[in-house]
Amino acid sequence: MSLFSKNNQETFFNPLSSSNPVTVQVLGICSALAVTAQLKPAIVMGLSVTVIMSMSNVIISLLRKTIPNRIRIIVQLVVCAALVTIVSEVLKAFAYDISVQLSVYVGLIITNCILMGRLEAFAMQNGPWESFLDGVGNGLGYAIILVIVAFFRELLGAGCLLGFSVIPQCVYDCGYLNNGLMLMPPMALILVACIIWVHRSLNKDLQEK
């Protein structure tokens, strides 16, 4: 079986759209609400989840035949916890400001439902390479949604992108005001709902009868 067979391609690309962890499976919503007020933390969060998910998928996949069935969740948790700690320390060392902004949410990646879901549903049954692709695909699928939500929240809520103000002063002079509601968590939920709405109206087979 080649590295980029049709099956493997599906493993990688499906989570980006037709089985997206956030918009289709509606997992990982809590962190999507919490870290998307600005674009920068959202990107870092998305990347952290991608890294942790791909690595933990590979590790669990390598161990899958030796893990006793009854304690598999604990083993998965230990692997995740170790990786989350590593990522958290790396962020503190090299991107301190962002790690302060993300605060507990990096640590809480361990409880991210997508992570445990993929380990349980995919890595326990498949080889390391497929699991790696699945982890990267799901991580990126999560990251895309985070970035889209954060883009709109930062643009409309603060008039900035990545911290640079992009709405010209003359617009403010005409009476424009930033939308404070965009910075509050409920608006992230409504934006995710809008993405789901658009996504489903484009993909007819996702619509429920």
């Binding site: 005001l177 939308n179 404070g180 509601l181 965009m182 509050m184």
Partner: peptide
Amino acid sequence: AFLFFAYPSA
């Protein structure tokens, strides 16, 4: 409510 939370200053 939208106005109240989105544009409190107005």
